[in-house]
């Protein structure tokens, strides 16, 4: 590149020439992009000044975001692993010492941990399953309704936007004996939040209510990818509404469904706010996040708390791994070129 173009490239982000051999109607067109990427890869040694400055600019633009993300997550994760290998109770700071895997042994042999783990898994599986069904219904309604589309979409966004703690309080009061309309309606004379089974059901209800719209929005994005012509072709081929849904829409939407499931499963696994407000983890309704928080902040036992943190992190990584490897979930944005 000539000297003048170089200085332009540095002056503003807008100028790198779109170096495709044959710029088509859109500069982001698949073939042009691909050719260009190939060029960048194989031409590592023969970078022009322009490309070098494009890289410099890109790294400069990405650096702040990358630094913040790494500083706030990368180092603490390592630190957390280190803490998990210590006996470290803030009430007895003098007793801090390296204990190897003793904390892990203690946590993994504790019935509290396994109860919480079971509760978390149960809530995760049940709520995500319900959300998938409800979310799909909601997505279809939002996508296909012939009247009041704006109204439906706006109201569906309310649960998404509302503060979880606020929603949790609404559910808590609704199920509080005497105060709540739901308690009086469905369980007069009892206290549903003080019994494990009904408390878990209410926690799941609160979780489902809050996150179904998000699921629905992700699924709606998938629905938009199903071409109308495909559905028309299917009905010409003799498929009824249900068959069209199962045999045409679901397979086409599969990538979107898997992404939605992955997001929601990982999100549900870290459930905290709802349980904290609804039961505070009483009657064996703690999730792993609640349990870790109790050990950390209330008991001030950093060693045990960190051990739980690490275990939760590993569980989440395992879930993500299973989704990506077993179901072939395409992580959104993981590949900017030649996706699908």
């Amino acid at each position: 590149m000539s000297g003048e173009r170089l200085s332009e490239d540095q002056a503003a982000p807008g100028s790198p020439a779109d170096g495709t051999a044959e710029p088509g109607p859109s500069p982001a067109g698949g073939s042009g992009r691909g050719g260009r990427t190939g060029g960048t890869r194989s031409g590592r040694r023969t970078l022009t000044e322009g490309q070098r400055s494009e890289r410099r600019l890109a790294l400069l633009l990405c650096a702040p975001a990358a630094l913040v993300m790494i500083a706030v997550t990368g180092w603490p994760i390592i630190y957390s692993v280190w803490l998990s290998l210590q006996r470290y109770d803030l009430r007895f700071p003098a007793d801090q010492e390296f204990v190897g895997l003793a904390n892990y042994v203690e946590v993994l042999t504790s019935s509290y941990w396994w109860t919480s783990f079971g509760v978390t898994l149960l809530i995760t599986v049940v709520s995500v399953a319900i959300e998938l069904v409800l979310g799909m219904a909601l997505a279809l309604i939002m996508h296909r309704t012939i009247v009041g589309r704006g109204l439906v979409r706006t109201s569906a966004l309310v649960p998404y936007g509302i503060v979880t703690v606020v929603a949790a309080f609404s559910w808590r009061y609704a199920w509080t004996p005497d105060t709540g309309y739901l308690a009086n309606l469905f369980a007069p004379g009892s206290a549903p939040l003080t019994d494990q089974a009904s408390a878990l059901a209410i926690i799941t209800l609160a979780e489902v209510w809050k996150t179904t719209p998000f699921m629905a929005l992700l699924l709606m994005a998938g629905l938009a990818l199903v071409p109308d012509d495909l559905l028309k072709a299917a009905s010409m081929d003799g498929a009824g509404p249900w068959q069209r849904f199962i045999k045409v829409m679901v397979p086409v939407m599969k990538p979107a469904i898997l992404v939605a499931l992955l997001f929601r499963t990982l999100d549900a696994f870290r459930i905290f706010d709802n349980i904290y407000v609804l039961t505070s983890g009483a009657q064996d309704t703690s999730s792993v996040s609640i349990l870790a928080n109790t050990n950390l902040i209330q008991a001030l036992n950093l060693g045990i708390g960190s051990t739980m943190s690490v275990l939760i992190f590993l569980s989440v990584a395992l879930i993500a791994f299973v989704f990506v490897k077993l179901f072939g979930t395409a992580a959104p944005g993981s590949d900017t070129e030649g996706r699908r």
Partner: peptide, 8 residues
């Protein structure tokens, strides 16, 4: 000529 040597 592009950086990868392709002659456009």
């Amino acid at each position: 000529r592009y950086p990868d040597g392709a002659l456009a």
